[in-house]
Nucleic acid binder design. Structure first.
Lengths: 344, 344
DNA sequence: GTTTGACTTGAAAATATTTTCAGAAAACGA
DNA sequence: TCGTTTTCTGAAAATATTTTCAAGTCAAAC
């Protein structure tokens, strides 16, 4: 494969000149530039990223560290990042921490060693550790947290307003006549778990509905947990008349548990989920859902990262908060309408 | 960050020795080795991948080029590759061709320029192009095609037996009393589209059921297409009594179309899908599904790649074919049982 | 005619590693 | 004890690029 020297020889210039044409770091005579560009074309020259990154201590790769690659929500997010990376001519190293802080740390080390230009991460916990962070800071590698907030200073964050998402979902249920609303939410150690519970509580409070701790269940973000927690809720006495589920996989488990109890949505129980996914728009399910702009989330995080890369002097931390939207479908029909329908 | 020279100085040896300890390329005295290892620990040394890859013309990164990152099937596949890569201490560059051959080509060039150690790809077409291929061959970068076959010689492939998967699905429907079975399948330009149609035909032929071209519809792998093709099938006269869907997204569309026609599964029409996904096990849907070992597919492809990397002299092309399994659930109940149930 | 300055260009250093070649020391056989 | 082999180690080259520094050319200004 042709290297910069071959191009230089072919064009009859020095390698410095070729480098300058390549990077636009200094003026070169227009004819010379043309000649060099022609030579690059002719030899099908592609700069060696290894040599570049060795010299500049920086690659054209960004790291993307996801907490659960199985979740379709993160798929969309990845796609958003990927699209923007392609556009900026960066490649993407994908890492999956599997919600495991140890594995997360391991991958952060890998990304650091790889000299990534920057990193976008869905953190598994609220602190990344000062040691790691200062390494990145020292080499001026920007980090953007996405979907979940971190406490560390000078880590940007791109988030969705989870309190509001949950608040709107619960308010909607209350408006539609539901009063005894159970909530199954994610772990309290991440903001997506805590904030959605917070929104649930706020909505109840604002409606003057007394808060019942028995109706709040939390656990890890997966279908089995959703099923277990929903089972617990369904066995309460008096029974819940609606369930709010704080994540797409939890919703899946909830649907299963409801079905296992021989209950119908929404006739016997209303259900509102979080995260749009393939199946939520299925007309046979017709799930009312808090939709998150996952693709936009990824894109925005990537854009913010590239801002840092293009202008490394920005040091102000920024938090971008996107708005969720409530997509109202059949699973949360007004209680009275629902009864009329059942009688008909 | 400490480099090899710092380690050498700290341990009182030459950099050659450190390099040897690092790579195990030659014997070094046991005490010396210990000392060097201690120094690496002490200085928290991590080798610079750029320098390595510059020198060896090979990185510790493998490329993974997916055709549709939105499809949950590929998620599992990615996860399988990722797990195996982590295990071998390789990183993963993720690329998404979006079923676009041009973008696929672009990404292949990127991977080549990045000096990836190898590539795993879900090809969008059956030929990758001799030009590209010979570049990879020349530098001895192995390529493994996964999920879809390619015609090019010396590209390994890891596949699922699609003919068999479809064959079993259709045979099952026939056994359960269905005779007028419609099929919606993927594009005829990829093996996952063609082979599943082939399995459908074989099963019909073997059962002596005449082949009716009107019952076969194909299009791209997405939900909108699934809906459209199913709509077409449902408007046939006489009506179909079962539908076979050749991919998870197509199934999603099919479910929607069936619901829109006010039909019930399986009471009015049976449905068998392809690809296990989150929703197929939902008890309220209970979809009979041809399950593909997506995770295993990814893992196997990665393993095959690492075999090549560890032993570059293997030049025999290999095709690994994994078996799908038919998971029988409620959506394809025997016709008679179903009628009994309805009467009850 | 000389000087100044702007504009281009090239030579060479620097980046961190692997690998080849050669040499030193140790072990071994006679 | 002397040669011979083996084992281990170090010096230096090589990898492809960016970047600094110096120098060359040319035009304009004095």
């Amino acid at each position: 494969m042709a290297n910069i020297q071959d191009v230089a020889k072919h064009a009859g210039v020095s390698i410095s000149t070729v480098s300058r044409v390549l990077n636009g770091t200094a003026k070169v005579n227009i004819d010379v530039r043309r000649r060099v560009e022609a030579s690059m074309q002719a030899l099908n020259y592609m700069p060696n990223p290894a040599a570049r990154s060795l010299r500049t201590n920086r690659s054209r790769i960004i790291g993307l560290l996801i907490s659960d690659i199985q979740n379709p929500f993160f798929m969309r997010l990845i796609q958003g990042v990927e699209e923007e990376a392609l556009h900026h001519e960066y490649s993407l190293i994908l890492c999956n921490s599997n919600e495991n802080p140890q594995r997360e740390q391991q991958y952060l080390d890998v990304l650091y060693a790889e000299r990534v230009a920057g990193a976008i991460i869905v953190p598994t916990r609220e602190r990344l550790g000062e040691a790691t962070l200062s390494k990145f800071r020292e080499r001026q590698i920007p980090i953007v947290a996405v979907d979940r907030r971190v406490k560390d200073k000078d880590v940007d964050a791109v988030l969705v307003d989870n309190v509001r998402g949950a608040f709107e979902a619960i308010s909607h249920l209350i408006t539609n006549g539901y009063r005894r609303i159970g909530a199954i939410t994610g772990p309290m150690t991440v903001t997506t778990g805590r904030d959605r519970l917070e929104g649930y509580r706020q909505a109840l409070f604002e409606a003057g509905i007394p808060h019942d701790p028995a109706l709040e269940r939390s656990g890890t973000f997966d279908a089995a947990t959703g099923r277990r927690l929903t089972d617990e809720l369904l066995e309460l006495d008096p029974p819940v008349d609606a369930i709010f589920s704080g994540n797409n996989l939890l919703t899946l488990g909830a649907l299963d548990a409801i079905h296992a109890h021989n209950l119908q949505v929404p006739n016997d129980i209303a259900l509102v989920g979080y995260d749009e996914t393939y199946w939520s728009s299925l007309s046979s399910l017709s799930l009312t859902t808090v939709m998150q702009p996952a693709y936009e989330l990824g894109r925005t995080a990537a854009l913010r990262l590239f801002q840092h890369l293009q202008n490394p002097s920005i040091h102000t931390r920024q938090e971008v908060v996107l708005a969720p939207t409530l997509e109202i479908r059949g699973s949360s029909l007004p209680k009275d309408v629902r009864q009329l329908k059942a009688q008909a």
